[in-house]
Design a protein around this nucleic acid. Structure first.
Length: 277
DNA sequence: GTCCAGGTTTAGC
DNA sequence: GCTAAACATGGA
């Protein structure tokens, strides 16, 4: 068992998990079990620190983006002189943008469209249980996120039976694309605009999903996903009047540049925590 | 029962 | 190019 101990001020495990970047985690002991690809860790707060117990510390150090200094993002948010952003940044200063597996991020956010977070979690869990490789972490047995190759073996009816709704065919299409030429590693070499364009060629991937995959799978901070929550923030807190979400994304990326992604997470976390309070 | 969710696709102008 | 309806499901 390996252990990472990291100061909690800019690494709050609860905020990081509950800002909607990932869907595979659950409360456990005094913290959470977090699943990524075929790996698992146990994360909890202890005193002034956040502790990660796992079998692969190098993987999770990178996963939680612990090489990066997030204090500067909070300062940068303050410097924007926008009350709502500053408030959101201080509430969410412990949020970190994860370095997720590209395939997992892609399939997860295809499933996320027009769906509630608790239901997304349920679908992804059923998908992993049905098709993922069985693994052991300590006393915990779990299933890895299925590979594209494994997903491509099943048909639309299989996914419909798992409760994917109309997204069933998207999983079939994209898993086949990924096993027949489309390479996520290859498109990783493209600049963000071209990367997004390429992702949009996959059926089931629209602008919002492409932005999420770009941010959470490819760690492109010049991405700003606009969903119903951010749409609300835009209208209610930024006085925005555009209704075309592509234009809303462009507005924020023009304004926040390479800090767009993290600012978006601060705002998303802030807005949702108000509603769920 | 109605509304809504980390939207996208397709059809029709 | 744009707009509007259709799409499955289940929790609130």
């Amino acid at each position: 068992m390996e252990k990472i101990i990291y100061p909690s001020e800019f690494f709050d495990i609860k905020a990081t998990l509950e800002c909607g970047q990932l869907f595979r985690f659950r409360p456990h002991g005094r913290g959470y079990l977090v699943f990524s690809k075929d790996k698992c860790c146990y994360a909890y707060a202890e005193g002034e620190n956040t502790v990660i117990e796992c079998d692969d510390a190098e993987y999770f150090y990178n996963y939680f983006d612990l090489n990066k200094d997030y204090a500067e993002y909070v300062s940068a948010a303050d410097a924007e002189d926008t009350a709502i952003l500053s408030k959101a940044a201080h509430l969410g200063k412990g949020v970190r943008i994860l370095n997720q597996d590209k395939e997992e991020a892609l399939f997860s956010f295809i499933i996320s469209q027009n769906n509630h977070i608790p239901r997304i979690k349920g679908i992804i869990e059923r998908l992993s249980d049905a098709l993922g490789e069985k693994k052991i972490f300590g006393e915990t047995e779990y299933f890895a996120f299925p590979t594209a190759a494994r997903l491509a073996e099943k048909d639309k009816d299989f996914y419909a039976a798992l409760g994917l709704g109309y997204r069933d065919e998207y999983i079939v299409n994209v898993s086949n694309a990924l096993t027949h030429g489309y390479s996520l590693e290859a498109v990783a070499a493209l600049p963000t605009a071209e990367l997004k364009k390429s992702l949009l060629s996959l059926k089931g991937v629209g602008p919002k999903v492409a932005d999420c995959v770009s941010l959470f799978g490819f760690h492109r901070f010049d991405s700003f996903p606009v969903d119903t929550w951010i749409d609300k923030v835009y209208r209610e807190n930024f006085g925005g009047e555009e209704t075309d979400r592509k234009k809303i994304t462009a507005y924020f990326v023009n304004r926040f540049g390479d800090k767009s992604g993290i600012f978006q997470q601060y705002l998303f976390y802030y807005k949702r925590s108000l509603e769920n309070a």
